[in-house]
């Protein structure tokens, strides 16, 4: 495998290998927390921090962890690590824990974290793994914020809790309910694929 530049690793996470749009990872959490933009922002912050740190930790331990028990070891390391951060946050940064607290336990079981540990951090150096964590984390964040923006706007008529239509709009609660999450996610993936296909077709035509 050819070594990729850090920029390419970052762009892979953000765009070309986007965890939600391409890898279809972490879909469950992205559907559940996107009822409002503020929730999505909280979840984004939690995922980015945990992903970077777990990638670094797994990358550091990659030579020690035996192959046969790697998945178990990843889960133990990640869950233990996140719980420690969660406890420290509750004790010393209570206001931050208030806004992020409910997302932290969700992040531990987010499959993006485990997938990046298995697919990337266990095979690459510390710096590359950290960059991968940033890229994948941002890729996830951008998508859930888009979904949350659309769902909150149509479903509640608000953005970050502020009324935007001045009361003339009757919100459609379908978009707040789980069905709306699937519809918005599907449309987002369709748009992404359409743009990608068009770009690919143009490249093909130039050849």
């Amino acid at each position: 495998m050819k070594k990729k530049s850090l920029g390419a690793i970052f762009m892979d996470g953000l765009l070309f290998q986007n965890p939600i749009l391409v890898q279809m990872l972490g879909v469950c959490s992205s559907l559940a927390v996107t009822t409002s933009l503020i929730n999505a922002l909280g979840m984004s912050a939690a995922v980015i921090v945990v992903l970077i740190c777990s990638n670094i930790a797994i990358s550091l331990l990659r030579k020690i962890i035996p192959d046969q028990v790697r998945i178990v070891s990843y889960i133990v390391v990640i869950a233990g690590f996140v719980t420690i951060v969660d406890l420290l946050m509750q004790a010393y940064l209570p206001s931050l824990a208030d806004s992020l607290g409910i997302f932290i336990p969700l992040v531990v079981v987010n499959c993006i974290i485990l997938a990046r540990a298995e697919a990337f951090a266990s095979k690459n150096g510390v710096i590359a793994s950290a960059v991968d964590g940033i890229g994948m984390g941002l890729g996830y964040s951008v998508v859930i914020c888009i979904i949350a923006f659309v769902r909150e706007l149509i479903g509640s008529g608000t953005i970050l809790g502020y009324e935007v239509f001045g009361g003339y709009y009757q919100p459609s609660s379908l978009f707040i309910l789980p069905a709306g999450a699937f519809i918005v996610l599907g449309c987002t993936i369709a748009c992404y694929q359409a743009v990608r296909n068009r770009k690919a077709a143009r490249k093909e035509a130039l050849k």
Binding site: P66, V69, S73, V76, I84, Y92
Partner: peptide, 22 residues
């Protein structure tokens, strides 16, 4: 098995210490 035991042991001790502290 020994390495796995070691990893879980270290994590458990760290968790215990943090819990006691906080």
């Amino acid at each position: 098995a020994l390495i796995l035991l070691l990893i879980t042991g270290v994590v458990a001790v760290l968790l215990g210490v943090t819990n006691g502290m906080t």
